[in-house]
């Protein structure tokens, strides 16, 4: 156990999984929804940009025949931000699109999540409601799609 506890890699993996989950929710959420959740929290520390927010490109890759070696499919616009809290935590964001404010908010939330004082609040006041919104949206889309499922039936021919 002592060995495990000292293994920084294992410890950072759980931290990483948490940050990835939070980032996934933020990346998919609309900026107005993120803003609404952030705006409702009192005395939230303000972060400052470590470097200017930047809009750039990521080349998206597919796989040959869906399962084979990778190939370059085409690019997507991505905006990235780095935000540091007064307490020293640094948050990052890379999100699809060109919304600099959204990237800033996402980086701020990543930083706050890393801050022990704020993690619980971020989870309950920002991530949980946003994730709930996304789940609802997905469920509506899935239900609409499910209605178009084909139920084949074969007509039995009149043979004994």
């Amino acid at each position: 156990m002592l060995v495990l506890a000292k293994d920084m890699r294992i410890e950072s993996e759980t931290e990483t999984a948490g940050r990835r989950r939070v980032m996934a929710v933020l990346a998919r959420s609309e900026r107005v929804d993120i803003d609404k959740q952030i705006g409702a929290i009192e005395a939230l520390p303000r972060g400052r940009n470590v470097r200017p927010v930047q809009i750039g490109l990521v080349m998206l890759r597919g796989r040959i025949a869906g399962i084979g070696a990778p190939f370059n499919l085409g690019e997507a616009t991505v905006t990235r931000a780095v935000v540091r809290l007064p307490t020293g935590e640094t948050g990052f964001s890379y999100v699809f699109g060109r919304d600099e404010e959204k990237a800033n908010r996402a980086a701020l939330v990543d930083a706050l999540w890393q801050c022990p004082k704020w993690r619980a609040t971020v989870e309950s006041e920002i991530i949980a409601p946003l994730a709930q919104m996304l789940r609802r949206k997905d469920a509506v889309a899935a239900a609409e799609t499910a209605a178009t499922r084909v139920d084949f039936f074969t007509l039995v021919r009149g043979e004994d």
């Binding site: 750039g56 490109l57 990521v58 080349m59 998206l60 890759r61 597919g62 796989r63 990778p70 370059n72 499919l73 690019e75 997507a76 991505v78 990235r80 890379y94």
Partner: peptide, 8 residues
């Protein structure tokens, strides 16, 4: 360009 994505 920031880089390349993981294959979808």
């Amino acid at each position: 360009r920031f880089g390349y994505s993981d294959p979808v």
